[in-house]
Design a protein around this nucleic acid. Structure first.
Lengths: 341, 341
DNA sequence: ATTAGCACTCACATCGATCGAGTGCTAACA
DNA sequence: TGTTAGCACTCGATCGATGTGAGTGCTAAT
């Protein structure tokens, strides 16, 4: 357990360092009005904090910077969410423009959050695993191509085009569609291939002319590839952070961001609620030099998505926490009103 | 008109500079086996070329680098497409994996092209201006929300969710859908709002209960917002180029890329066929320090899209031209077979 | 017309000196 | 015993001097 004094100095150092990105020295601290101690005393405290691995030096005679453990302590024990009314108002105001389109809202949120923080925002769309099929629509576009459209009970629309043998007639396609709708409605997406085989195959055999070919097509269309989508906002904003002054870091960062699968993995693994993973606490190699803050939003009882902010470990945790909380609430409120009352 | 000798030297300088990114001096050139001249003679030729504004110096005693005008001359008069069989094979091979989904193909192409060149690829989806409506589908998701799905004759699927007054019954929605399909089929997307008013409004008034509210909703759903989509590939690749060694340039570059509207403008304005805009030849301020190479692909008789490559003005024009040609052909071939035979 | 020779330019790298912010330690002090 | 003043020391950053090398333009000889 830390003493009051240690706590005060640790907090002040971290606050200052987050602000300036420069190591903090004892002399500078002694001038802080909230600390009425000589620089020598402060040095002693600093040495103690360094022994506890909460602070570090960049070289033997430099000022102190927080270690990752220091940030962790800061996040867990020190900070209290500091709501800046002004920014909250911006969020409320922007989100109030009634929009209904999910993609639009999410993209706007990503851009907004990024703009308010100067970090990069990544939003993970809802995972539709529990969604069930509401309707199938088959539309013939030309002699040889057709589009299959799946609508889920969550309002999500998925579509795939496929080639259709010219021997299949329009009416046959319609017949097929009826069978599918009849048998597959309310079936969870993940179960579609199985139900297709157990319930639909026999029917197709009976009623559809070219059933073998068609079955193959339909099966591939209905095989739900995990289509969780990712929305990125403010990729360039983060370049303003001084830690991105050399190209290598930038390269690493963008390579990571481009790896969609990695990002999906990363975000889905985080538990719900606001959570911070600082530097090496992160599992994946690529993100070990950054901090990842995630929060979650709710679309309905089954569907949740994630909002994430990626930035340097020297991050304005205080501000970020409150902003993300506000934004997640706002998004949830739009799609799933009054859930958190 | 340039003399043979001037041509040779100009070409060699540009080729070398594209390769190394370092200014080229007369001594280095005199050692090139294809140039049998002393360095002094070469210096004279260089001075001439500089007078013609085809070459530049970075400082008074530096070697020469191509000016933008020099690149333009190089592109227009010197280079002949140099097909590297190996890379062409890669393209053919990758594109052969039969995929049908447009988005997938396009994204893959963008990544591929970027990987082969180390520049950033931007692909503009087809502009659907001439597309006509094939089918409308209204699906009720919950008490208060519904999804409208539009399918075009080109196989493009667009969907929007909207709130529906709880007073509207399921059957009413179906009635409405039938009216819409009856009256709007084969109407060009851009004309939808007009046809809606002239043909559908009266019918709705007659047959639909809450026609006023519904008309507003339907109108907003059918108002086609230019949804031309953009696919970006290899954002991080370009960081390998030595001209991106300072953060400011990187920042400018990514800010430009993030501005989707700008990119759409930029690409749509380019005429069809392969085309290069070098540095200041570009209209928009943001891209004046880069070169933009565009090519076009064909989805059908009416729909074309654009492929673009953005990189430093020092770009491997030769390689890029042939690769882009090959890739556009390949994409066109997938969607619109045998059009260019 | 071409080339050798030469004086000159300028970016770039290296080196040393200096500066200053910072530390740890010790001894004096309340 | 906890706090502070003082001091020697460390190390990054900055600056100027200096040398080097790749390059040029010009002139005179071939």
């Amino acid at each position: 357990m830390l003493t009051e004094r240690q706590l005060l100095i640790l907090q002040t150092i971290i606050d200052n360092f987050i602000d300036t990105a420069h190591p903090i020295g004892s002399r500078a601290l002694s001038k802080d009005e909230s600390i009425q101690l000589s620089s020598a005393t402060i040095r002693n405290v600093m040495a103690d904090l360094e022994d506890m691995a909460l602070l570090e030096k960049t070289h033997s005679s430099s000022g102190r910077i927080p270690s990752e453990k220091g940030y962790r302590y800061y996040v867990d024990h020190i900070i209290t969410p500091k709501m800046k009314q002004k920014e909250l108002n911006i969020i409320k105001h922007v989100m109030q423009n009634k929009m209904v389109d999910f993609e639009q809202i999410v993209q706007l949120s990503a851009d907004l959050l990024s703009q308010l923080t100067n970090y990069t925002t990544v939003i993970l769309g809802p995972n539709d695993m529990d969604a069930t099929l509401k309707q199938v629509q088959l539309v013939k576009i030309s002699d040889t191509t057709a589009v299959a459209i799946l609508v889920t009970n969550t309002g999500h629309v998925e579509h795939k085009s496929f080639t259709v043998p010219s021997t299949i007639s329009m009416s046959e396609l319609e017949k097929l569609m009826n069978i599918l709708n009849d048998r597959l409605q309310n079936v969870p997406l993940v179960q579609l291939p199985y139900t297709l085989q157990s319930e639909v195959y026999a029917l197709m055999e009976k009623h559809i002319h070219n059933y073998e070919v068609m079955y193959d097509y339909i099966q591939s269309v209905l095989t739900y590839d995990d289509s969780t989508k990712i929305y990125v906002g403010g990729q360039s904003n983060i370049l303003m952070q001084p830690e991105f002054k050399d190209v290598e870091k930038i390269y690493d960062f963008y390579t990571m961001l481009e790896n969609e699968q990695l990002m999906i993995d990363l975000l889905s693994k985080q538990s719900e609620g606001i959570q911070a993973s600082i530097g090496n606490e992160n599992e994946h190699e690529a993100i070990k030099h950054f901090s990842l803050i995630t929060s979650s939003y709710k679309l309905n009882d089954n569907q949740t998505g994630k909002i994430a902010l990626i930035g340097p470990t020297r991050m304005e945790y205080r501000k970020v926490f409150s902003l993300m909380q506000a934004l997640s609430d706002e998004i949830s409120e739009i799609f799933y009103p009054h859930s958190n009352e």
